[in-house]
Design a binder for these strands. Structure first.
Length: 685
DNA sequence: AGATTTACTATTTTT
DNA sequence: TAGTAAATCT
């Protein structure tokens, strides 16, 4: 717990390094504080200095709890705190920090036994949860006569309710399916069975990590222990917390009231995951003496970009006046381009990217944002064609990709041989084994005590299935005897057996084999299987791919959701059509406003260059479809944009066909921005 | 015939 | 990646 020595601390001149509004937050005394921080107002910087300030006041690091939206955000903030207070890189700063989920995970492994949670629980991720819920639905209702059988639409709706917003379910199922009245009953039956199975296999899903944590805070014995554990609680991105998270925060801070919540109601974009914007609005009601601070100066974007952002968000009825003002010098207006189709959109964006790079921008200073992960396909192809390296964020993450999950499933069985979900995954990799055969086998394997008894399991199966079962049996038995080995070695052993399948199934198996090699390397620093598997589920660390590319200077492709909290000198927002942004299924006013906030988030990521594009038609496998510009685009005050409709006449040879506004003075601007003290030379500050 | 596997098509956002 | 139709096995 030590590793932290007050004498190594360098005195920070907070007043000199922060503006007055930030300084007020950083040096705020005890009691509840709410910080309404606009986009680009130095929110992360303020929080980081707040932590450093508390440490300078003599608060021990382990008495501070810092809750962030991603684990990466917390890790980066802690690195900066270490720099500020002059701590060596390898010195540990024993502060409690991370997402609600990862802190909940740690606490439940320590105190869970008091509320009936096995300390060795495994974590059920979203995909596994979905599989389990679907299986249960089928088992419970698959054999009913047609009339009382829930339609596939109902089943999938119920499952998506259970997955994404299990917390606010009661509200609207009946209303959504008035024609099928027993739906709530159906839902409850499925959930009850789901709960039972989780308990039987000691599994916790993401919601459980929160709700059991909340139970802990209310426990007569553990509650007071947690109350006394932290003196200061800091919560970032408060607008995206859900009800349970808000209750946890309230319970933890109730006794000492030392809570600082930071957020921006204009950037609330996670209500589909049960985030509730009311949490931030009601903060002053819950904490009666709360002092509200506003950070209203934007240090990130040019006035032209900020004007556009303000114009977009002003169309929302529900919003709280917070006038953001820019301090950067004027530059050109954001550019809106209509292009003929999605292929030309990709070509045009790539042209622009090459132009920006020719003018001295580094690739990592450029980002392309879109509403849905698959919108990037044509752009990825074009970037590949021209040999421009890029990093894809959003979409499937490293640990969510099929081959990684397959290999992890073997280890999960090794860790807990009653893990039915992993069994199912592994078994179905083999010829002749589908859901039915897998289930038959799992019923038998769940009877044995340890994997040592596995060779004795001989279910009655078809010829092909028996052959497959023997293979699985062989692999697992051999793994069982290597159990003492390092996790990296275990993964290598699994890879040996998995390679044939990989080569046969995936055309891009070279890349995937490489991934698996990296997984083995990543895993070799672990010797406890349980903690490795937890990290894989919670993605506690950087993914391997990200870690590898960390220093890579490449263009970033990202969903808007994933771009939250980040910034780039040049940003493209593509595919701004009625069919994609706002999402066509976002119909209620509430949903429309969230989509508008999403566009606001996208626009405010840009520091200097901003390009909006939309194709007038999109090619699909079944021909092409004509598109209209997003209503958000047609709503914009035309004076705020430079319109570019020259795409029809462009010769797309390479770069030169498009008139590109020269930007030679960018480097100078850069220097000015850096020297004012608000934008150090690190991204996302 | 009935059960089960495999092939095919279309896809919102995620700790 | 998931739901459904077609193909294949028992």
């Amino acid at each position: 717990m030590i590793g932290y020595n007050m004498s190594t601390m360098i005195k920070i001149d907070f007043e000199k390094e922060l503006n007055s509004a930030q300084h007020e937050v950083v040096t705020a005394g005890d009691g509840p504080h709410l910080v309404l921080a606009g986009a680009g107002s130095g929110k992360t910087r303020t929080l980081t200095y707040r932590v450093a300030w508390l440490l300078e006041q003599g608060i021990k690091p382990e008495r501070i709890l810092l809750l962030t939206f991603t684990n990466k955000a917390a890790a980066e903030m802690m690195e900066r705190v270490k720099n500020l207070i002059g701590l060596q890189k390898d010195n540990k700063l024993s502060l409690w920090g991370g997402t609600f989920h990862s802190v909940g995970n740690r606490l439940l492994r320590i105190y869970g036994k008091h509320i009936g949670v096995e300390p060795g629980f495994a974590i059920l991720d979203q995909e596994d949860k979905k599989t389990l819920l679907k299986n249960i639905s089928k088992e419970l209702f698959g054999n009913l006569p047609d009339k009382s059988k829930p339609s596939p639409a109902i089943i999938s709706e119920v499952i998506s309710f259970a997955i994404n917003s299990g917390i606010k379910v009661e509200e609207s199922l009946d209303a959504k399916f008035p024609e099928w009245l027993p739906i709530v009953e159906f839902f409850e039956k499925v959930l009850a069975e789901y709960k039972k199975r989780k308990q039987a296999n000691s599994l916790l899903d993401f919601d459980d990590l929160l709700s059991f944590w909340k139970t802990l805070t209310e426990h007569p014995k553990i509650g007071p222990i947690l109350d006394a554990k932290w003196d200061y609680i800091l919560v970032d991105e408060y607008q995206d917390t859900n009800t349970v998270q808000a209750e946890i925060v309230y319970n933890l801070a109730e006794s000492h009231q030392n809570i600082l919540a930071v957020g921006d109601d204009a950037q609330s974009i996670y209500s589909f995951r049960a985030a509730d914007i009311r949490n931030i609005l009601d903060f002053p009601k819950k904490f009666k003496n709360a002092k509200t601070h506003k950070l209203e100066t934007n240090y990130r974007s040019t006035p032209e970009i900020l004007n556009l952002a303000n114009n977009v968000i002003s169309k929302n009825k529900k919003q709280f006046t917070k006038k953001l003002s820019a301090v950067l010098p004027s530059y050109t207006r954001p550019e809106l381009s209509a292009v003929r189709n999605n292929i030309e959109e990709a070509i045009m964006i790539t042209d622009r990217i090459q132009g920006l790079m020719a003018d001295g921008l580094r690739p990592k200073q450029i980002a392309i944002l879109f509403r849905a992960a698959h919108h990037s396909q044509s752009l990825e192809m074009e970037l590949n064609k021209r040999g421009i390296d890029y990093e894809m964020r959003g979409g499937l993450k490293f640990f969510e990709r099929a081959h990684i999950k397959d290999v992890a499933a073997w280890l999960r069985i090794l860790y807990n041989h009653k893990d039915a979900i992993s069994w199912q995954r592994v078994l179905q990799l083999y010829e002749g084994v589908g859901p039915a055969t897998a289930k038959k086998i799992i019923t038998e394997t769940s009877q044995i005590k340890t994997l040592e008894e596995l060779p004795g399991v001989k279910p009655k199966l078809s010829e092909k299935a028996t052959q497959s079962w023997n293979k699985v049996n062989e692999v697992l038995s051999s793994l069982f005897h290597q159990k003492q080995k390092n996790i990296g070695e275990l993964i290598k052993a699994v890879n040996e057996k998995y390679r044939d399948y990989l080569i046969e199934k995936f055309p891009d198996h070279y890349q995937r084999e490489d991934d698996l090699g990296q997984l083995a390397a990543f895993a070799s620093s672990y010797d406890d299987l349980g903690s490795f598997l937890t990290e894989v589920s919670l993605q506690e660390n950087f993914t391997v791919r990200q870690a590898q590319k960390q220093d890579n200077d490449v263009v970033v492709l990202s969903t808007v959701h994933q771009s939250k909290g980040l910034e780039w000198p040049a940003v493209f927002i593509m595919n701004l059509t009625t069919q994609s942004f706002p999402h066509p299924l976002a119909v209620t006013e509430h949903e429309q406003e969230e989509e508008r906030r999403l566009l606001y988030v996208a626009i405010t990521r840009a520091m200097k260059h901003l390009y909006l594009t939309y194709p007038m038609s999109v090619y699909r496998f079944d021909g092409h479809k004509s598109m209209q510009p997003s209503i958000f685009i047609s709503d914009i005050d035309g004076n705020l944009l430079n319109h570019n409709e020259l795409s029809r006449n462009i010769t797309y040879a390479s770069g030169d066909g498009v008139s590109y506004e020269s930007d030679g003075d960018f480097e100078d601007h850069e220097k000015n921005e850096r020297s004012d003290g608000f934008l150090p030379d690190v991204d996302n500050w």
